[in-house]
Amino acid sequence: MSSKKKKNKKTGVPDRWLDYAPVGCRIPGTRFIAFKVPLKPSLNCLVPESDSFGPWQLLDSVRSQDQDLGLIIDLTFTSRYYQPSDIPQSCCYVKILTEGHRVPSDAAILSFKRAVTHFLNQNHDNDKLIGVHCTHGLNRTGYLVCRYLIDVDGLEPAAAVELFNACRGHRMERKNYLLDLNRGAKRSNAGIQQPEQEPIRGLAVKPPSGPAQRPSDPAQKSLSGTAQRPAGPAQKPPSAPAQKPPSSPAQRPHGPAQRPHGPAQKPPSAPAQRPPSGLTQRPHGPTQKPPPGPAQRPSGPAQRPSGTAQRPLAPAQRPAGPTQKPQSDPAPIPLGPAPADTPPDPSEESQTLGENRPPGNRRRRRPRHRRGNKPQQSSLLPDPPTAHLPV
């Protein structure tokens, strides 16, 4: 667990950072204002939206007090919380590495006095403030601000400490810091007019669009998201139906438009060749009655009568079949000699085989021929003439 806590301290939000107010108020009679360390966007996303605090929020908080921030003095012993690129261009930046939990060294105190003096000399014609912060903006910040008030401005230690606690909103906690301020010797002011380092101008032009600006960021994301989502479906519907509907119906009418041409050409060519000259005279009568449009329709059925006219020729030849068969079949197979006492009928002798027979006999013989392999001669018919024919 201890290793995890150490890792979170080095990479995450500072410990107890949320327990302190972001910004105090201006210390009367000075240009100092204390605040806790502002965080870069990647660290602000780890805290609730209401507790996020970055360089741009710092600038807004100072302006809300009708003040203008001109210099930021960073006393933290690390550079992971933010970079000069996160600071607005309207502010300058000075970094003084100061170790925590220990009383700052004389070198750190001198560097602080030089940075403050140099800024006051450069901005004597304005009233811009000097913002000082450590991790919580309380112990290291309070010690160095009070040390300047005691050593340079000549303020009493107790009055300086009480003034700082009232303006910051929190009381200093480190006893070693308080003990050194109240009972420690004053530090020398020699060399404070000599600037140690030139302040760095901030590089940020506008607030970041990342998690540091959460209150304004969701509004921008929602607007941008809603503006882009309708754009996708708005482009798809016009493109898909614009191409498909015109192409498919444009081709379909061409098919049925060509179909009528086929049947219009076939009727005139078919009746001109098939029907004979005699049959062509019959349809002239009905063709004159209907209008010229339907005149082509009867041409198709006009061919049908020609087929029916030829069909009767086939049944006309059918009787010739059965008349020839009895002549060949009964001739070699005699049924027996006629009795001697019955003379032959001359009417029957003069008749040829198959003539003047009753139609009923023909109707009976046809199914019998179909049923059996060989036709049986009816007993009703007279015997075929063989030896009784006259010479």
Rank of each mutant, 00 (worst) to 15 (best):
R80Q: 13
S79R: 15
G100A: 14
H124T: 04
G137V: 05
A107R: 11
G137A: 12
C91V: 14
C92E: 15
V132T: 02
K95E: 10
P84L: 13
L120S: 03
S61N: 10
A115N: 05
L110R: 06
T98H: 07
V116E: 00
K128M: 03
S111W: 02
Q122D: 10
V116I: 03
F77P: 05
S85N: 13
L120G: 01
P104Q: 11
F77H: 06
L120M: 13
F119L: 06
I96D: 12
G137E: 04
S85P: 04
I96K: 10
P104W: 08
K95F: 15
Q83I: 06
N139Q: 07
C91R: 07
S79Y: 09
G100H: 07
T141W: 10
I130H: 08
L97R: 15
Q89Y: 05
D68I: 03
Q83W: 08
H136C: 11
S111A: 14
K95I: 05
Q83N: 14
I96Q: 09
N139T: 02
N123P: 02
T135C: 07
F77S: 15
V94Y: 05
G131K: 02
A107I: 12
L97T: 11
S64P: 03
S64W: 01
Y81G: 08
F77V: 06
L120E: 05
D66C: 04
D127T: 05
H118V: 01
Y82P: 03
L97Q: 14
I96Y: 11
D74K: 05
L97Y: 11
I130L: 05
R114D: 04
I109M: 14
I130W: 08
K113C: 09
T141F: 11
H133K: 02
H133W: 01
R114K: 15
Y93S: 10
I109R: 14
Y82L: 11
P84Q: 13
Q122Y: 01
Q122L: 14
L71N: 04
C92L: 15
L69I: 13
Q67F: 05
Y82I: 09
L58F: 03
F119M: 02
A115P: 05
N121Y: 03
L120W: 08
C91A: 11
N123I: 01
T141V: 12
Q122F: 03
G142R: 10
Y82F: 13
